[in-house]
């Protein structure tokens, strides 16, 4: 564990609490992509299968359980409790275009051709692009509630912080995880446009609005 990874994980935790806070206080999941949230459930379930056969640390296990449970709970809130506030007509990204290629990539790029390792690779690739339905939705509506943008920023910062973590680990432990690093750089890259608007507008106290 190092400072960057810890900060990244905390940022990930924060993003989930911000999202829950947004849903509970506005009693609405308007502006949140159900598809992206469903993809995160798939990401966590496929990646954290090793809960059953590999123990890393208490921290690691507790975080894994939290991410699985919270992502399922968010899905429940969107699907049942606040269902009328979700508008599927603007959440139209075709996730087949993400699931298919990620699966094929995981068959090609993995550390061992075994069930759990292929699913692990799949989850890494899928996480990298899982935000696309959400960003696509943002693009369509052209604006977002401020709290939603804080959620997205925390989520983006999480993977961005993993990049210095990997650099640090390379120098201190000689460890390189090419699959996670490549996917992580792609994932962070997808946020660049969003970050630009977030830093130049939202953090200056303006509303998140994309130029028409």
């Amino acid at each position: 564990m190092n400072f960057f990874r810890l900060l990244g994980d905390l940022s990930h935790l924060a993003s989930i609490f911000i999202l829950l806070h947004k849903i509970q206080t506005t009693r609405s999941c308007r502006g949140i992509s159900f598809k992206t949230q469903a993809l995160y459930v798939a990401v966590f379930v496929t990646r954290y299968l090793d809960l059953f056969f590999r123990y890393v640390s208490l921290y690691n296990s507790v975080m894994k359980l939290f991410f699985i449970a919270s992502s399922c709970y968010i899905l429940y809130l969107m699907k049942y409790k606040y269902r009328p506030t979700h508008d599927p007509s603007i959440d139209t990204f075709r996730i087949e275009y993400l699931l298919g290629p990620c699966f094929v990539l995981s068959l090609i790029f993995n550390y061992k051709f075994s069930f759990s390792e292929i699913l692990w690779s799949f989850s890494i690739f899928l996480e990298a692009v899982a935000i696309l339905p959400q960003l696509f939705m943002l693009q369509r509506t052209g604006e977002a509630e401020t709290i939603t943008t804080h959620y997205l920023a925390a989520l983006g910062v999480y993977r961005a912080l993993y990049i210095p973590n990997w650099i640090y680990r390379y120098f201190t432990e000689g460890l390189v995880d090419p699959i996670a690093v490549t996917a992580g750089i792609v994932q962070t890259g997808l946020y660049l446009d969003f970050f630009y608007v977030y830093f130049t507008k939202v953090l200056q106290g303006q509303k998140f609005e994309l130029p028409a």
Partner: peptide, 10 residues
């Protein structure tokens, strides 16, 4: 290889 040492990141 990584598979043997396990994935210790989230």
């Amino acid at each position: 290889p990584l598979e043997e040492q396990g994935h210790d990141e989230l």
